[in-house]
Computed example of a mutant assay.
Amino acid sequence: MTTRARALVAGDRFVLNRLLATDLATEGAFDVRELELPWPHVPFGPVAEVDEASGSEEELMTALQGVRVCLTQMAPLTRRILAACPDLELFAVSRGGPVNANLEAATEHGVAVTFAPGRNATSTAEYAVGLVLAAMRRIPQSHLGVVDGRWESSLYAYEETGLELEGATVGLVGAGAVGSRVARILLAFGADVLVADPYADPATLPPGVRFVELDELIATSQVVSLHARVTDETRGLMNAARIAAMPAGSVLVNCARGALVDHTALAAALTDGHLFAAGLDVFDVEPLPPDHPLRHAPHVVMTPHLAGASRAVAERASRMVAAEAGRWLRGRPPLHCANPDVLARVR
């Protein structure tokens, strides 16, 4: 008789337990235990030495007793939890990076940690293009005018009208999983797409995209959309000097990471009219504090880090971590292991 491996699905109100349990059932014989975490209704935060986690060490230590596989998005994996849960072998995190897991401690305890790269690439790309359109045409501001009882036909005045994507030069800073999808969408709009990314493979981008240096992209693009990772090289990439180098009346969009932009300089460029508009889903401080300069800047579209929030993302993420559990059950190495050194020591 085959022994069923005990698994914990520790979902939340985005990556649901029912999704995880259903997908896990297609991967093999698991004895499933469930724990529902309160995110996003309760914000994530640090738990002991890990960040962006939901739930407590105590409830995870209880739920993980006798468990060999855990599927989660936000559950913490700390040194204390690992020490208290010796049966755990696989911790599959359904997000682009397992920041809620202590990888060093997991490796020491022989626990493989996996993640789900690219789970939200399509969602983020579509959202970025949506922000481009919303900023270029000032759609949210017009909507609020109608809600407030104003029918602002004065917005037809030449100086108040928006911009078009067709024929516009749009510069993408970064052309990975998200940026390459944005490029394909923009080309369909008829935009002239430039890319600045020293690490991108031209073969992964659609025909018609032109590679240029960053300074040329910034100086010639009517829209600049950011899709880069935060590194020592890119932190503060869009500083006051680079924002000033953008053409007058241009648009800046960021769905990547808030640390790429000097938000004080951006607010100043919007206030003095150098930039036509901006669209932002990420910020240097989240949630946005009451005294943040962008709260008082004109012509900025802001959303609360929602680019990756789609039902398809939750469903895709669930399938990805369930597939990792299936590989583990069949004795195969995980596809996306964040601590590959552990693989030689387990199973």
Score class of each variant (00 low, 15 high):
Val251Leu: 03
Pro207Thr: 15
Leu90Met: 07
Ala29Glu: 15
Ser318Gln: 07
Val285Thr: 15
Arg345Tyr: 09
Glu160Ala: 15
Thr271Ala: 05
Gly167Arg: 09
Glu27Gln: 15
Met246Cys: 07
Pro43Thr: 12
Ser142Cys: 12
Leu71Ile: 06
Ala265Arg: 03
Leu294Val: 08
Pro76Met: 11
Arg137Glu: 06
Met74Val: 15
Cys255Val: 02
Cys70Gly: 02
Thr122Asn: 09
Ala125Arg: 00
Phe189Gln: 11
Glu126Cys: 00
Val282Lys: 02
Thr114Leu: 11
Gly236Ile: 15
Gln141Cys: 04
Gly190Tyr: 12
Leu64Tyr: 11
Leu306Glu: 02
Leu165Lys: 04
Ile243Val: 09
Arg311Gln: 12
Gly258Lys: 04
Ser56Ile: 08
Pro98Ala: 11
Arg242Thr: 09
Arg316Glu: 03
Cys85Glu: 04
Tyr127Pro: 00
Ile243Arg: 01
Arg6Gly: 12
His263Arg: 08
Leu194Phe: 04
Pro334Leu: 11
Leu172Glu: 01
Ala245Met: 03
Thr231Val: 09
Val224Gly: 07
Gly273Tyr: 04
Pro38Ala: 08
Gln141His: 12
Ala121Gly: 08
Thr231Ser: 09
Val212Lys: 08
Thr271Gln: 06
Val67Thr: 02
Ala29Phe: 11
Ala323Thr: 14
Met246Leu: 01
Cys255Ile: 01
Val223Gln: 02
Gly190Met: 13
Gly279Cys: 03
Leu19Ile: 13
Cys337Tyr: 10
Ala265Glu: 01
Glu315Ile: 04
Val212Asn: 07
Met238Pro: 05
Met74Ser: 14
Leu205Gln: 08
Arg150Ala: 14
Gly171Arg: 07
Pro333Thr: 04
Ala297Trp: 01
Glu324Trp: 05
Ser180Val: 05
Val223Phe: 01
Thr204Met: 04
Leu217Gln: 05
Glu216Ser: 13
Leu155Gly: 05
Leu252Pro: 01
Glu49Ser: 02
Asn120Gly: 06
Ala175Tyr: 06
Pro298Arg: 06
Asp232His: 13
Leu288Glu: 07
Val224Asn: 00
Val129Cys: 00
Leu24Pro: 07
Glu104Tyr: 06
Ala125Ile: 00
Gln222Pro: 04
Val146Thr: 05
Pro289Asp: 01
Ala188Ile: 01
Ala241Ser: 15
Asn254Arg: 02
Val313Ile: 08
Val47Met: 06
Ala245Pro: 03
Ala25Cys: 11
Val212Ile: 13
Ala219Val: 09
Ser250Tyr: 00
Arg79Ser: 15
Ala323Tyr: 07
Val321His: 01
Ala175Ile: 04
Glu233Thr: 15
Ile139Gly: 00
Gly55Pro: 07
Val261Ser: 02
Asp215Arg: 12
Asp232Asn: 09
Ala116Trp: 08
Glu49Trp: 07
Ala265Val: 04
Gly110Val: 11
Thr231Asp: 05
Leu343Thr: 06
Phe30His: 05
His143Asn: 14
Arg229Ser: 13
Val251Phe: 05
Asp23Met: 14
Pro117Gly: 03
Gln65Ala: 07
Asn100His: 11
Ala309Pro: 00
Val67Leu: 02
Gly97Lys: 12
Ile243Phe: 10
Ser142Thr: 14
Asp215Glu: 15
Val253Gln: 02
Leu103Cys: 03
Asp341Glu: 15
Ala25His: 13
Met302Pro: 03
Ala21Gly: 12
Ala277Pro: 10
Ala307Phe: 01
Arg13Gly: 14
Glu164Pro: 05
Arg316Thr: 11
Asp197His: 11
Arg18Ala: 14
Cys337Trp: 13
Pro46Trp: 08
